[in-house]
Design a protein around this nucleic acid. Structure first.
Lengths: 191, 191
DNA sequence: ACCGTAACGCTAACCGTTAGTGTTTTGAAT
DNA sequence: ATTCAAAACACTAACGGTTAGCGTTACGGT
């Protein structure tokens, strides 16, 4: 799908990328709080209103992969291999997400996020959305469990990501937390 | 401690309460978003800057019991009865907190919170703080477990509160989620 | 009685965000 | 080819939460 997006959409995507690039450049140079929306718009050479037609908020300039993460989490729950258990699939995806966050250029970004109040807040709201989306997906993927148990599992998985991201050994932390989640999920089944 | 707070502190407390009362009155009358900070200040007959010297933000006007909840959670972990297990103490406290949120006049407040974006966000940030405070308390209360397991437990407990608060049967939901947490915590011990 | 301090007030502004309005570009239908 | 509706983009102006700067008053300890 979407092999020839058309000129309009290409231009739109280009503008979006121009804005995001300008924003990250300035944020890394001067720090997130020291850069205003008007600065970003000027650097990208667009109007402020144009910027907000591409990004819903200042924080959204930083969390651009947002929806992608959500989709991956949901996909891990709904489109898993026949032989793989639900929790195992979620653990595998969490491993991948954590690896992605702690390696390479993304690490700098997350350092900035952790150092900035407003961004930490946005991250929380984001994760809440992810947990809600995952809980909804679980309704189809684990109909034999109750709503409460599914909601808890969804939050626990998102927590695992949060805990592991800041742990000394992220990969080991994912395994450790998922060991706990495994037990919790098993206990939920035998209620 | 603090049996005779002195006139100054009494006046300060009175001003604070006047502001909070005025705010809640207006919020319930017109809705949170329809009331401006300048409206609240006028209703309480104080300057806007005075309002912000008592409350850090508009949302803080609604979440006034904030620190109390945090203290109770921490106390449940650190000052429990000798015969009571750690998770059992946290479950008991969570039961009490949920009951407090879903009964009486507080229920109206939480209805407003759930209906307002900005307040839901603040609640998330608040809960994150609670989880962090609890995790720190757990370092002393459960030194035989690793840092990762303690952080996970802290988040799970706060999740239990969040899941139960909106469940059909809040009390049963607390028990259900804590049954999962029990299993998770036991699994963390035998890693 | 005195002085440092903290509460309170006022003005003015900053910053993220949005409404209102108009212009240009683009894709598609005629 | 021409025309048309939609969408991107821009500009101005404002709104609402929040803060800085500065002055005034009331309190509490000495």
């Amino acid at each position: 799908m979407a092999e020839t997006p058309g000129r309009r959409e290409r231009k739109k995507a280009a503008t979006r990328r121009t804005i995001a690039d300008a924003a990250l450049r300035l944020f890394f140079e001067r720090g997130y709080d020291a850069v205003g929306i008007r600065d970003v718009a000027a650097e990208a050479d667009v109007a402020v209103t144009t910027l907000f037609s591409h990004f819903a908020s200042k924080e959204a300039l930083v969390f651009d992969q947002d929806e992608s993460v959500e989709r991956r989490l949901v996909a891990a729950a709904t489109e898993r291999e026949p032989g793989e258990g639900l929790v195992a699939a979620l653990r595998r995806e969490t491993h991948a997400l954590v690896r992605h966050c702690t390696a390479g250029a993304a690490a700098d970004l997350w350092r900035m996020i952790d150092a900035t109040e407003a961004l930490r807040r946005y991250e929380m709201a984001m994760r809440r959305r992810h947990a809600e989306a995952l809980a909804e997906a679980l309704a189809g993927a684990a109909p034999d469990h109750g709503e409460v148990a599914r909601q808890a599992l969804a939050r626990f998985v998102v927590d695992a990501f949060g805990v592991a991201r800041t742990a000394e050994d992220p990969a080991a932390a994912v395994d450790e937390v998922f060991h706990m989640i495994d037990a919790a999920w098993a206990a939920a089944g035998s209620s």
